[in-house]
Simulated scan of single mutants.
Amino acid sequence: MALLFDYDSVKYSPNNALALAYCAKWAYLDAPLAQAEVSKQLQTNKFQFVNIQSSGTQAFVAGDSHKIIVSFRGTEPSKLQDILSDIRLMQVYHALGNVHGGFIRSLDAAWREIFTIIRQFQDNNQTIWFTGHSLGAALATLGVAKMLEFSYPVSGLYNFGQPRVGDKKFAESMNKEMAKRYFRFVNNNDVVPRVPLRTIGYADCGYFLYFDKAKILYDDLSIWTRLLDNFHGRLEALGEKGTDGINDHNMDAYIAGISKNMDKLVK
């Protein structure tokens, strides 16, 4: 059965959360397979894959007469540990605030091509949506920031396992400009949303949505309740292959969480 998409939604939509979570997953596929999935499940008739070999930046843009979706590929699971231990921390200037230098360089390498495709696809005033998982979520956030910088409207940003992208000013700017249109999902002990550290000048942004170890979705979870749930999640993961923080980063875990909470309404 095809996925539903509320293309004119002005608030959180479980249908859009699930559809964009799948788009974040499909961004890891080769272009023909990604196109087949998107066109089948979301009835899109426009598709273009972007692959910048020099920077390793990959994304697809898909669309139809109602919507345009931009989905960035994230960190390959086999390389995640290397990324966490060798992340570039230097911030650089952006109009909305300072941002992670490595992330913005990756986006800049592909942005002209991506933005050109968006403009080519937008022939019916379609709504525009961004998504990504892991590094892809960081690039999606910066892509939306680029759109905002030039007053180009974005209807929604749904991110999964997103690392921190910029400083407090950047976070405040994004939260103001994308209020209740930018949703940041974190699955239990997922380690990636905890880097880069706040202590070196990074801040969280987006409307925080959290899955506990039982995949129950919360949008008003206190920090102490979350820490306790993290602890229980780590206890249950003892003896499992890999670490809980890495396992919880898996995109399939996010899809499972959203699927379990399709009746959940956020504030």
Results as ranks from 00 to 15, higher is better:
165 V>Q: 11
8 D>F: 07
55 S>P: 09
241 K>E: 11
28 Y>H: 08
11 K>L: 15
136 G>C: 05
81 Q>R: 15
112 R>H: 15
27 A>Q: 03
224 W>V: 00
70 V>S: 09
110 A>D: 00
166 G>W: 05
191 V>A: 13
41 Q>Y: 08
49 F>D: 15
237 A>L: 02
161 G>V: 02
50 V>Q: 10
240 E>H: 15
181 R>I: 06
140 A>P: 08
8 D>L: 14
141 T>Y: 00
150 F>I: 15
260 K>F: 03
240 E>G: 08
74 G>F: 01
87 I>K: 02
185 F>E: 04
212 D>P: 05
187 N>D: 05
180 K>I: 03
61 V>D: 08
46 K>H: 09
38 V>F: 14
163 P>Q: 11
55 S>C: 14
19 A>L: 11
226 R>I: 00
158 Y>I: 10
185 F>S: 08
125 N>D: 14
235 L>Y: 03
187 N>T: 04
219 D>W: 03
112 R>T: 15
150 F>A: 10
59 A>K: 01
245 G>N: 09
219 D>R: 00
4 L>F: 13
247 N>M: 10
142 L>T: 03
25 K>H: 14
169 K>R: 15
69 I>Q: 07
108 D>C: 11
18 L>W: 02
76 E>R: 14
105 R>M: 11
242 G>S: 05
123 D>Y: 09
67 K>I: 08
258 I>W: 12
132 G>P: 12
180 K>L: 14
46 K>A: 03
9 S>H: 07
230 N>M: 06
136 G>T: 07
172 E>W: 05
222 S>G: 05
217 L>I: 02
172 E>Y: 04
227 L>P: 00
100 H>F: 02
110 A>W: 00
46 K>S: 06
180 K>E: 09
71 S>L: 07
195 V>I: 15
182 Y>M: 10
26 W>P: 04
